[in-house]
Design a protein around this nucleic acid. Structure first.
Lengths: 195, 195, 195, 195
DNA sequence: CATGAATGAGGTTTCATTCAT
DNA sequence: TATGAATGAAACCTCATTCAT
């Protein structure tokens, strides 16, 4: 029913990011998104099931690209240290490049509508897997301590990056998020490295 | 105008926790909270400015106790290592003891209403200060590396604890959250320790 | 949830009859009914589940009184002939006294919304029973032919009265509906009488 | 503008009957009828003015055939009794042969949209005339009582046949409608016959 | 003749808040 | 203090209709 391609599809998603970042999720009326995307209200519903679906699609679309880029860059790295560095750098880099998107994912999307949480869950798991694979590989290669709980390490990594980004967004993106890459990488390395 | 004491005040706050945990933020109507608290709808407005104020008060009330307990326990500790351990243990311990409250703070309260964020901010800063003082002390005493960015370390600590708790809530509190205390403490120590 | 008593309940029902008769079912917005009843839009929903429920309640309320009056009058009659006459007279009499209600029941309520049909069905069955009992009694007492199919006779009686009333409403109630009582009574009697 | 011939015209009408019978008038969207007729949405508007026009045309088309067949059969009959019998038999026979059409005309088309009522009126009058002519002839030939009100008798005949058919449709066409022909014919004859 | 993507007006319903009692 | 009936603003979504191709 809902055709999830085409330039209007993209236009609506981009409009949604802008409107939600500007007005917050609660004031982001469908009609405002439509106006911002320069389509009629009804057109939204040719491309999305309902309002929630806009948010879910938005997240999946952007997060999908996010993960793909992360995965692509990680493949080019050789050492575990480098990979961990790239992960941190890519995570913060992508969000710092698009502060509006960052605001939406870090603040506006953190709300409890069950349908949205569910829709988002699948993509998040992929990102979690990406991180866990990295940790696992680090342990196998003897770079990280063998007694490290993979899932816990992932939670530390994601939790830290997430908190750092949220703080940055709450401070209205006034400082350079990427300046945190090195010290964060340091914390992670010390936290997990063997010996 | 709003009298923030009395047993009805407490009853309403406790009712709000239960209702929000059970029905989610979106279905948590004021009238339902009133019914759960066994007061009339209008009575709510003798104790709270508006609906947001219930949530903010709820958070401040509970988080205030949370911080107070944390501060009290930390004072009893001697070594930095012990203090860090106590911090982790108290954070996870308190939330694991009250899963309904945990659900509300970790999931339902993470929404973007600016007034709520603002109201919550003050108390959160106190908790952030608590953590940062601990890190600062660790650096001064030479336990943690001197090049550690205090605020960043705080974000790692809080971000990790927060992510761990959120994961636990999302998995419906099925496992023992406290089992994570030791490994998390480990990660933090390794991450920040000198030498 | 919906409190189906009180003067506002009655006011809304009466307003609904007026508005629907005047504007037709499709243009009968809830807000217009509310305005006509001099209550707020939301007040409607303290007394009715939804818009359909207004129609169903309206019908049941009015039809209930309709049947009750019919039953009451029938009890006073002695002969079957008299009862049949009273039935015809009461049916046409009641509707001719309230042309607005007649328009609603004969025209506006004949639409296919399944919920409405269902809600209406129960009361209609009571009226059908009333007619069928009369026919049965007539057969038992030997006034009507023994080979008459009770249900079919009821359909003839109701179908005729209904069609006569609908015609009258469609002609904008310009003639006296009660002038048909005698000839209709005649048709029924000849149609069913024995010998 | 609207070309009321061609095989697509017929296909759309037949599709409309099927869709309305299946989904009810309210869910019978133009786009669904188009899909069922295997034409594009826009094509509908090459053959019909608007949605109401589909219904009106449908009714007139089907009812026109209905009347024509009735008139044809009546001409072949000789006695009034036979003609009355044929009328009842043709009315019930045609509808019982096409339950989908019966559902549409008996249930779904009984709604109050004034344009539809108007469009339908003309054809109905023709059928009413057919019945009234029969009654008149019966009176002239001395078969029916001279004091019978022609129009009233028509209302009884049509009202009864209509009610019987509606009941049958509401009971999901589970029994044989034609089994009612004889007893109904009986009721009519007794009701109108002289002496 | 035919298509079908796009349009945009319009109405039901919810629920936080008030205020007369 | 406490009540709870009443308020009324506000927004998602549907679907008949159009028109560029």
């Amino acid at each position: 029913m809902a055709k999830k391609t085409g330039e209007k599809y993209q236009a609506i998603i981009d409009a949604a990011v802008r409107v939600i970042a500007r007005q917050g999720y609660h004031s982001a009326q469908v009609s405002r998104i439509a106006k911002e995307a320069k389509v009629a209200d009804g057109t939204i519903y040719l491309y999305f099931e309902n309002k929630d679906d806009i948010l879910i699609s938005l997240f999946n679309e952007k997060m999908g690209a996010f993960i793909e880029e992360g995965r692509g860059r990680l493949e080019q790295a050789e050492s575990i240290e480098q990979k961990l560095y790239i992960l941190v750098h890519t995570h913060l880099g992508q969000l710092s490049r698009d502060p509006e998107l960052a605001k939406v994912t870090q603040i506006e999307l953190r709300q409890s509508n069950p349908e949205i949480s569910e829709g988002i869950g699948t993509v998040m798991k992929q990102y979690f897997n990406l991180i866990e694979e990295l940790v696992k590989e680090g342990i196998e290669k003897g770079v990280f301590r063998p007694d490290i709980d993979v899932r816990l390490a992932r939670k530390m990594i994601f939790g830290t990056l997430d908190e750092v980004t949220t703080s940055w967004v709450m401070k209205e993106c006034k400082y350079d998020l990427l300046s945190h890459v090195d010290p964060i990488h340091n914390l992670f390395q010390f936290g997990m490295k063997g010996k």
